[in-house]
Design a protein around this nucleic acid. Structure first.
Lengths: 211, 211
DNA sequence: ACCATTAAGTTAACACTGTTATTTTATATT
DNA sequence: AATATAAAATAACAGTGTTAACTTAATGGT
């Protein structure tokens, strides 16, 4: 059965086949209830083959999430070109939130699951590179707005401002992902929650003049 | 070895022994990396004995969290007596955040982990009872403030306001728990993040007059 | 043309998990 | 003293991530 030499393209193709199967199963059944054996069976290989392509399950997850978050960051590139700094902030928040709600499994793995600190040798993403790292994008946009003097006088730390905006949107999305189906909560519409979070925070952070 | 009849007090005592051991291990090593066998070994019983006291691992976790969140809610009772409605909101946010940071494992299990909707027959907590349910406390306090007309005119849904405040504080705390140790983030001080979230949100939600 | 090398993949196995069925044991009641 | 029974223990099942050992089959060198 096993033919000998595989061109780098073929290798990459199988790598992607694994990733696609894994993504599909994760989205269907949630991230930790799908096993390496299942992923392998789905594509007709044995479980051990996966270990020729990924050092372990976590590396596989990391690769999956890297791919999706590269997609997020590059989808945001258009927003980065918008003229109005505050409009950019709004659009980034919206884009981020919609991404989180559309990819709950990956979002959860990336931002809601404590892990041993990211192995920087393994991840594909260059942190701080605004083409790859969504937080770096937000930080940059906030920094620009800060330099333009739009924030209230007493706020002198643009990192703190960015982290607060992030935490706000993250809070809405992560509660939706974790508890959106809980019967004991009467949740308001999730888009309304995102919108109010965004606008209330901005109103609280920006100078008062007509927002 | 097994003596025969156990008084209800003795039964309850072993139940608590199990819960304490489990809590201890969970806090040490994180919630899903400790097994039923380890908990049992810790207290000198066999794993199967735990199943005489809890139907399964999830029920054990649920019991643990119920206990801690009852403690949270009852610790908040003093705050509920404060005279100033807005002061109450501030104090609730602070109390909630400090609790989250002091009990990260339990917080994560309760609010950061998607689960099949809570089994209402099993949980000890009466949802909506402000003596047991911290969200109900917040909801009530916000409702009171809302009735006093402190929020901006366009905000007509007090549930939405409460959920936004919750999401904000939750966002800061859950990011701290999940990513507080990530090397690629230069986090601002967590108390500063909590404070800014609280004050920015309040400024954005309350009527403008001198906050 | 043959053989050794080696990549690609498989099977078997290890040490673990949550959980259940079965069995032991020591007491309490008859 | 014999029996019934609550409390706990042992053994086992089906599953997990992962590693070691083995099987192919195509290539490169002679």
């Amino acid at each position: 059965m096993p033919p000998k030499i595989k061109s780098p393209q073929d290798r990459e193709q199988l790598r992607l086949l694994i990733l696609d199967a894994a993504r599909c199963l994760f989205v269907e059944r949630g991230i930790e209830s799908v096993s390496m054996r299942e992923i392998a069976k789905q594509i007709g290989y044995s479980a051990t083959t996966l270990y020729n392509y990924f050092t372990d399950k976590e590396a596989l997850l990391q690769a999956l999430c890297d791919a999706d978050f590269l997609a997020l960051a590059s989808g945001m590139q258009a927003i980065m070109q918008m003229p109005d700094p505050i409009g950019r902030i709004r659009a980034l928040c919206q884009g981020y939130a919609q991404f989180a709600l559309q990819h709950p499994s990956h979002y959860r793995f990336m931002f809601m699951t404590p892990k041993s600190p990211t192995n920087m040798e393994i991840t594909q993403i260059e942190q701080g590179n605004t083409e790859q790292d969504a937080y770096a994008q937000l930080q940059q946009v906030v920094q620009t707005a800060f330099a333009a003097g739009v924030f209230r006088e007493e706020l002198q730390n643009s990192e703190l401002i960015a982290q607060t905006l992030w935490a706000g949107v993250h809070g809405v999305c992560s509660l939706e992902i974790a508890l959106g189906n809980e019967v004991w909560m009467q949740w308001a519409d999730v888009q309304a929650r995102i919108g109010l979070m965004q606008e209330a925070l901005l109103r609280g952070l920006l100078k008062a003049e007509g927002v």
